[in-house]
């Protein structure tokens, strides 16, 4: 069997990019969520929360660099089209990420009286970055069109994605913290979960309504039947998680990691739904992945490297997570 590389390579890279975005959203999602939750935490809790993400955030953010890097290298034309259309939201995202990233380090090193200033910057940066990501997702879902309805929808998705990140952050905290903070985190998770569910429902309904093509893909028979499990499983997981929040923290700290894993699964399912909707377009309804792809020989040389390096990256990332596993209180700062 011969492989048609010019057809296969853009597909492979679209999948890789999707994977990088999904990993980014799950991993940096909890970092950003914890940043937003700074608004509701006292000073002692803030230190514990930072300890829970301290060793990871840098590597987590690198997945965003990989995702945008893959967009840039594999789909150079789409990269320019998408990023110029989203000029200001991208700027807001970068502004937020800069603020978040440096506040993280500054807050631990400046004179104590200035610490609260950097705590505020950490909250602001995390919020701005989350909102900007949600807004961009909303505008992208509606095909990067101008107009007020699109802006409003973008704002709606911005709020819902931020809520989803808050849920991720709270779920991570349940795993990383103990005592009062853990109880608080369970409550945070429950509240954020409601908004997250509404948001996912809104995006799921808006996407087919905004594009007849996507409507056709979902609701034409027989597609509907084998796509139905996607929303159904998500719904069941949401309900299970919601019910679980009334039983946590459990004796012996059982199920501490379960909420995070359930949420990650929900994210993955939602992401799969989006990916199915947009395939084969990289700029919705305008540019397919084959139209936007870089030269096959360039893609091939990246793929060779990726095939070797990506498993190694995932391997040592697991190692790092294992080294810093368990409660964040175990991180000794004394």
């Amino acid at each position: 069997m011969t492989v048609d590389w010019p057809t296969a390579l853009p597909l492979v890279f679209a999948s890789l990019m999707g994977l990088a975005i999904l990993i980014y959203v799950v991993l940096d999602g909890f970092d950003l969520g914890i940043g937003i939750l700074f608004a509701a935490a006292n000073d002692e809790e803030k230190d514990a929360m930072i300890a829970g993400i301290g060793p990871f955030w840098d590597a987590n953010e690198t997945w965003l660099v990989l995702a945008v890097g893959l967009l840039l290298v594999a789909f150079p034309i789409a990269h320019g089209t998408i990023l110029t259309a989203l000029y200001l939201p991208v700027f807001a995202l970068l502004f937020g990420l800069i603020l978040r990233g440096v506040a993280f380090d500054f807050r631990a090193k400046v004179p104590p009286q200035r610490k609260s200033r950097w705590n505020a910057a950490f909250f602001a940066g995390s919020s701005i970055a989350s909102l900007a990501q949600g807004y961009m997702l909303g505008v992208y879902v509606l095909g990067l069109q101008p107009g007020w309805p699109v802006v409003l929808f973008g704002v709606l998705v911005a709020l819902c994605l931020s809520a989803a990140y808050v849920a991720m952050g709270a779920a991570w905290l349940i795993y990383k913290s103990e005592g009062e903070l853990q109880v608080k985190a369970v409550r945070w998770l429950r509240h954020a979960l409601i908004v997250t569910a509404l948001g996912m429902a809104a995006v799921s309904l808006a996407t087919p309504w905004a594009s007849p093509r996507i409507f056709e893909k979902w609701f034409a028979l027989p597609h509907l039947f084998w796509l139905l499990p996607l929303p159904l499983i998500s719904g069941v997981l949401f309900l299970w998680l919601f019910a679980l929040t009334f039983r946590l923290p459990a004796p012996g700290d059982r199920h501490a990691l379960t909420p995070f894993l359930i949420l990650a699964t929900i994210f993955a399912l939602g992401f799969a739904g989006l990916a199915y909707s947009f395939y084969p377009f990289v700029v919705p309804d305008r540019m397919t992945i084959w139209e936007a792809a870089a030269a096959p020989e360039s893609l091939a040389i990246i793929l060779v490297g990726t095939a070797f390096v990506l498993p190694v990256i995932i391997g040592y990332s697991f190692y790092a997570y294992r080294v810093f596993g368990g409660k964040a209180g175990d991180l000794r700062y004394d």
């Binding site: 690198t62 660099v65 040592y316």
Partner: peptide, 20 residues
Amino acid sequence: GPLLAYEVLTAFFLEAVFLG
């Protein structure tokens, strides 16, 4: 593209993960 991709893959991840 490939040069930037190799930077992210072989260098950026390495430093970011082991920095922790």
